[in-house]
Amino acid sequence: PPSLAPAPASSNPSHFMKGAIIQLATGELKRVEDLQTHDFMRSAEVSGGLKIDSSMVVDVRASQQRPGLVSLQFTVGEQQSKVTIDVPPEHPFFVFGQGWSSCSPERTAQLYGLACHHLQVGDVCVSITLQPPP
């Protein structure tokens, strides 16, 4: 079975540095700041085994377990399953039709040089899950 990627809180932040080279599933290379919604959709289509889900932000609050982090609660996919993840405030998420967004666009700009919108309740983010077998 495909291996599971790490959760955002533990991912390598250099992915998000402005100018970082990202390889799409089509083989195309793009800079992280140039990615668009259809790049994710197309990559999931051709990669097989992965499915793009819509994850709507329903709550944003300071993490109680991990000071300095932000707890983001999402409702995911058609089943509206609720998922909470703790991330640094500068962690960017890709919002459908809008692009990179974080809880602290100022910190994202300082740390990564990546221009972000402010992530808010109601934003719908790109997430991926395993495609169920046919």
Partner: peptide, 25 residues
Amino acid sequence: NVEPRSVPVFPWHSLVPFLEPSHLG
């Protein structure tokens, strides 16, 4: 001779949250 620096290339799926099916049940 100067060796060319290798530029890291990251896969697209490393940029977005991977939600495990167990989270979604």
